[in-house]
Design a protein around this nucleic acid. Structure first.
Lengths: 126, 126
DNA sequence: TTGACATGAAACCTTTTGGTTTCATATAAT
DNA sequence: ATTATATGAAACCAAAAGGTTTCATGTCAA
């Protein structure tokens, strides 16, 4: 499960479904490893390794209390994801996209005409 | 690079930096494989496989024109990511979070008192 | 002080990933 | 008709990922 190396990328960190579940679970409340791993079908050690990866990505913070280590969500690194995603917002209100495809459609064999996207039934010139 | 199997998860798809770069490149304009791969330090075949993964995730659409295949961005699946991320917005304007940590911070002696989760009834107050 | 918890580190194993090279096929160009 | 281009499929490979089991260490409870 990834060398315990430092600094994992946030995209990488959230790629795994188990880790996403961990995040949502730790968002609710801070929890020690044993309790956390009780919710998963894998060994405690495996969960522990996932937690390390999340920690390396800064998505989770640990805090020792007596003999147990509690983990909690640290949402800040998700902002990077948010920023990345923000770039693509421009494609959702798809005026730009429609225009772009119109232009591209032009320099081909003509088979493609500008069929607009699903939610824009208005405009399907032919 | 993943068996050419069907249906790749979008989180998985964007985990790879090369694939993220592909997305941004194909957002600009539709392009054939050879041109695309010219921008990457790896073989054309490798790029082609990345494109297949993106296509499996629905993030990219292909269209054959003569002997070439052109790829373009299909942003729609990113909405899943957006929705996922939206859940964590609540942690950024962190009133809730602050309160939660205050309560948790109270039981630093290791005795878990009242904070019992839905499913871990096992460890309730004593 | 002895024993039971909680946890991480190590070593190990199997499957997936990201990449390569070689080959086959379809279309274009001469 | 023949050759060149564009691309995907196959077979192969090394490294990373996701797990497991075993062991060591630190802390709490009797």
């Amino acid at each position: 499960m990834a060398a315990p190396s430092g600094k994992t990328d946030v995209f990488q960190a959230i790629a795994d479904p188990t880790r996403r579940q961990l995040l949502s679970m730790l968002g609710e409340r801070e929890m020690p490893v044993t309790v956390i791993s009780g919710h998963f079908p894998m060994s405690r050690t495996a969960v522990s390794k996932h937690l390390r990866i999340l920690a390396d990505a800064g998505l989770v913070k640990e805090r020792k209390i007596g003999r147990e280590t509690r983990y909690r969500l640290e949402p800040e690194p998700l902002l990077e994801l948010k920023r990345w995603l923000a770039y693509y917002e421009r494609y959702w209100d798809n005026k730009l996209l429609a225009l772009q495809r119109f232009v591209e459609g032009d320099e081909t064999d003509g088979t493609i005409s500008l069929v607009a996207s699903e939610e824009d039934g208005t405009r399907s010139a032919e």
